[in-house]
């Protein structure tokens, strides 16, 4: 009963945007039992080029697309080996060109469990292995079939991720993670669409995907500053290409690679428990996706219940 209450509490509040910066779901940080962390983050993403299939192009009727995400997140230490996370993103999109209306609203609520399966000292450092399982589902009836303005893919998503990190005693570390994302179908507001052939249905299959991340990082100033550089790859395993000069749709095979620079600072004395973070990311290559550049930042506050 007590554990159940703790879990419920841990799931009270939190934020995260699917596909954006799943730092907490893919890092190797665990919180101790009964520790709770609240985070509030803001992300500003833009693109003025997008990949139509593999071809990078512009579209004067979109101009620059802007996507602003405000995200709340709560993480909770159920035990020292098991953390729970909950995220809620609020997103607003608009474009500088053309006359199509942007949209705003809550996107997908995500609930995740993170488990530390292995933690051993090896050589001059330690080796960690973790797994996270996440479930996300739309919080509102936003329309997924209104791309590129849609808030999201409009479907449930299960993610299973494995994480391995080797960390030197001096504080430098290298980390890799692999995740598989299972997506369901998204309900759209028309009962016919073309996806290399006719479909007579109000549902679209959203392709499953793999995600790979490789990170170099370091702890500095007695573990008060964390710096990371990450190479991030997201690849759908099926799907069609955006048709020529046409809007994307949820069935598309989305792929991209991205570099991400990240810093997180924890105040040590005057405001113990408080942290600030900032990041920058940029997409290098892609398919059926806007070439996003994102900057973001936020606050974290952690304490023991």
């Amino acid at each position: 009963m007590k554990k159940y209450l703790q879990l419920t509490l841990g799931v009270l509040l939190l934020f995260a945007a699917r596909h954006a910066h799943a730092q907490t779901l893919s890092d190797a940080i665990m919180m101790k039992q009964r520790e709770i962390c609240f985070a509030l983050m803001y992300d500003y993403g833009t693109w003025d080029h997008y990949w139509e299939g593999a071809e990078l192009r512009v579209n004067g009727n979109i101009g620059t697309l802007t996507r602003k995400t405000t995200m709340g997140m709560v993480a909770y230490g159920v035990t020292k080996n098991l953390n729970a996370l909950l995220t809620i993103p609020y997103i607003e999109t608009k474009s500088s060109g053309g006359q199509l209306a942007g949209v705003k609203g809550f996107q997908d609520i995500s609930i995740a469990l993170k488990y530390e399966a292995f933690n051993k000292k090896i050589g001059n450092g330690k080796l960690l292995a973790l797994a996270t399982g996440a479930f996300a589902t739309p919080m509102t009836n936003y329309l997924s079939d209104y791309q590129p303005y849609s808030l999201g893919q409009g479907t449930t998503e299960w993610t299973l991720r494995g994480i391995v990190q080797y960390e030197l005693d001096k504080g430098m570390y290298v980390r890799g993670s692999v995740a598989h994302l299972w997506r369901g179908q998204t309900e759209i507001e028309r009962d016919y669409y073309y996806n290399n052939g006719s479909y007579y249905t109000t549902y679209m299959d959203v392709p499953n995907a793999w995600n790979f991340q490789g990170t170099l990082g370091a702890w500095l100033f007695k573990y008060s500053l964390q710096l990371e550089a990450t190479y991030f790859i997201m690849n759908c395993i099926s799907g069609d290409d955006i048709r020529i000069y046409n809007a994307p749709q949820p069935t598309n095979k989305v792929e991209f690679s991205q570099v991400n620079l990240f810093a997180h600072y924890w105040f040590q004395k005057k405001a113990k428990g408080l942290g600030v973070l900032a990041y920058y990311s940029h997409m290098l290559e892609g398919r059926n996706m806007g070439q996003f550049t994102n900057i973001g930042g936020g606050f974290t506050y952690q304490f023991k219940l």
């Binding site: 494995g162 692999v178 299972w182 179908q185 007579y200």
Partner: peptide, 20 residues
């Protein structure tokens, strides 16, 4: 979900989407 990452079995029973 299997005990470990990579040892999972996943069954997905989605609608078959009609094409005609």
């Amino acid at each position: 979900f299997g005990a470990f990452f990579g040892v999972s079995i996943f069954f997905s029973c989605e609608n078959d989407l009609p094409t005609r």
